[in-house]
Write a protein that binds this DNA or RNA. Structure first.
Length: 466
RNA sequence: GGCCUCGUGGCGGAGUGGUUACGCAGCGGAUUGCAAAUCCGUGUACUCCGGUUCAAAUCCGGACGAGGCCUCCA
């Protein structure tokens, strides 16, 4: 069955044909590391992890290259560094922020069952020309200047290299925007030094309390830092080439981020396409509202996993993952406690069905669902027709395998308690037997009684309730 | 103002011209010393109004409602 993917460029589902089936190449915009990742950030990471797994299944593990960057240069990072580490030299303060945040991000997404990408480049390593000759931001920018797609102008905060949006014929093709339709009202700040209101920054000069690199543009050295979009153009070209297969991210990145990436990359390289397929996941809301700090419904991945802030309990990463995948990736999700509770029950049932064995069903039904534009909700529905090893394999495909519960439960102690309890049953001492059951339950251990079908004897098993 | 999504049972959620997926919760029953778990059974739906059609939740038009983007937010 052919893989079909919805392409934002054409607003339709297309049969996916890789440029090189021996090396399928995908780029997904990663985090800007200035603060804990929130659960909205988790969605694209999970969605594209499923796609990565599917591609590996279809083309082979060694034939897929998945690049997800870490953006560790950004004005929000600078602000955070100055706030949190006022006494440290700037570069050190920044490194503290980015290291800490990136480490936390890695822990978070691992708990969500996401495979590490093939390559995870950091923006700061791609600002200036590199010894290995891989694509870098400064060279890309000079390239755009050479081809008259960019110009240098002086604004209120110093010199800037700006991209001239009118220099590209089909600027706005991805987001279906026409420059003249954009209202220069609410959010576009008219700046005199720009040729057009829509021109965006490629490089901006830094002041003394801002990080900067000495880059040369049109012969003049500008101590500065890159604009927002250029890092993805540089890093994707560095590892995936000028044109690659799939570029993914959240819906809100279509404009301006991805539009501008396309403009930079295509104009600098003289190509028609940056990526053949552009995929975007839908937005996430919390309890019916857009997640924002001011509304107070802002939840980080860390808080969900390790605190009782959301719904009065901690939630395992797999539950969060399933809660995301219950909805098709392009649909909006209203994240709620009820949804997590449902995911929790479903997952417990599925894991039990794996443990019980009784292998039946065909994983192909699940793969086929995913093959149709990553229809994960359909795929999850199909899980119900599987059991045993087939179900286990299907769960692995979705990244929902049971991981060893992080627990210090000593099995021998539990077994001893069960034996003790069975002895109380022999004396019909139900009160003591129940006391043992309740005590274990309070430790998160659920006892399950059943009867041996041959002898009618009571058989007690247990599991860790999460 | 421009552009883009989405309205399916109590909830989640596919489907997309004709057979009302699937799951969660609920309810009834079996089982149990009581529970939990499990098993069996079970109800309710396609925002509204037109149109096309033998047939529309599905296609077309309109209304209403919800949400998003429009320069650094995934």
């Amino acid at each position: 069955m052919d893989l079909r993917l919805h392409n934002t460029l054409t607003r339709s589902k297309e049969t996916f044909e890789p440029i090189d089936a021996k090396n399928v190449r995908m780029y997904v915009c990663g985090p800007t590391v200035y603060d804990y990742a929130h659960i909205g950030n988790a969605r694209p990471v999970i969605v594209f992890d499923v796609l990565y797994r599917l591609l590996r299944h279809k083309y082979g593990e060694k034939h897929v290259t998945y690049v997800r960057n870490i953006t560790d240069v950004d004005d929000k990072i600078n602000a955070r560094a100055l706030r949190d580490f006022p006494d440290l030299p700037l570069n050190e303060a920044i490194r503290n922020v980015t290291e800490k945040t990136a480490n936390q991000f890695h822990k978070d997404v691992e708990a969500l069952g996401c495979l590490p990408p093939t390559i995870e480049p950091r923006a700061t390593e791609f600002v200036l020309p590199r010894a290995d000759g891989k694509s870098d931001m400064a060279t890309l920018i000079q390239n755009l200047l050479d081809k008259n797609h960019a110009y240098i102008a002086t604004g209120g905060e110093g010199r800037e290299v700006l991209f001239d949006v009118t220099s590209m014929d089909n600027y706005g093709a991805l987001s279906n925007r026409k420059l003249e339709d954009q209202q220069a009202g609410a959010r576009i700040e008219a700046k005199d030094h720009k040729k057009n209101a829509g021109d965006f920054v490629l490089w901006k000069e830094s002041s003394a309390n801002e990080p900067g690199w000495d880059a040369t543009f049109n012969g003049e050295i500008i101590h500065g830092r890159p604009g927002w979009h250029i890092e993805c153009s540089a890093m994707s070209a560095a590892y995936l080439g000028e044109t690659f297969d799939i570029h993914g991210g959240g819906l809100d990145l279509i404009f301006p981020h991805h539009e501008n990436e396309i403009a930079q990359s295509c104009c600098a390289h003289g190509t028609q396409k940056m990526a053949n397929v552009w995929m975007h996941n839908g937005y996430l809301q919390v309890e019916g509202k857009k997640m924002s700090k001011s509304v107070g419904n802002f939840v980080t991945i860390y808080e969900l996993l390790h605190t009782e802030k959301f719904g009065g309990r901690k939630w395992p990463g797999e539950v969060l993952r399933l809660a995301m995948l219950m909805t098709h990736y392009r649909e909006p999700i209203d994240f709620s406690i009820k949804r997590l509770e449902e995911a929790d029950s479903v997952l417990a049932k599925l894991w039990r069905k794996v443990a019980e064995g009784d292998d039946s069903g065909d994983i192909k039904t699940v793969i086929n669902a995913l093959t149709d534009d990553l229809n994960s909700s359909e795929a999850i529905a199909k899980l119900n027709s599987l059991s045993g090893d087939a179900l286990g394999a299907a769960l692995e495909m979705l990244g929902l395998s049971r991981t060893a519960p992080a627990s210090d439960v000593d099995a021998s102690v539990v077994e001893a308690a069960i034996t003790e309890r069975l002895a109380f049953f022999a004396d019909k001492n139900f009160a003591e037997a129940d006391r043992i059951r309740d005590k274990l339950l309070s430790q998160g251990i659920q006892l399950k009684d059943s009867k041996d079908s041959e002898t009618g004897e009571r058989v007690t098993t247990w599991e860790i309730k999460r």
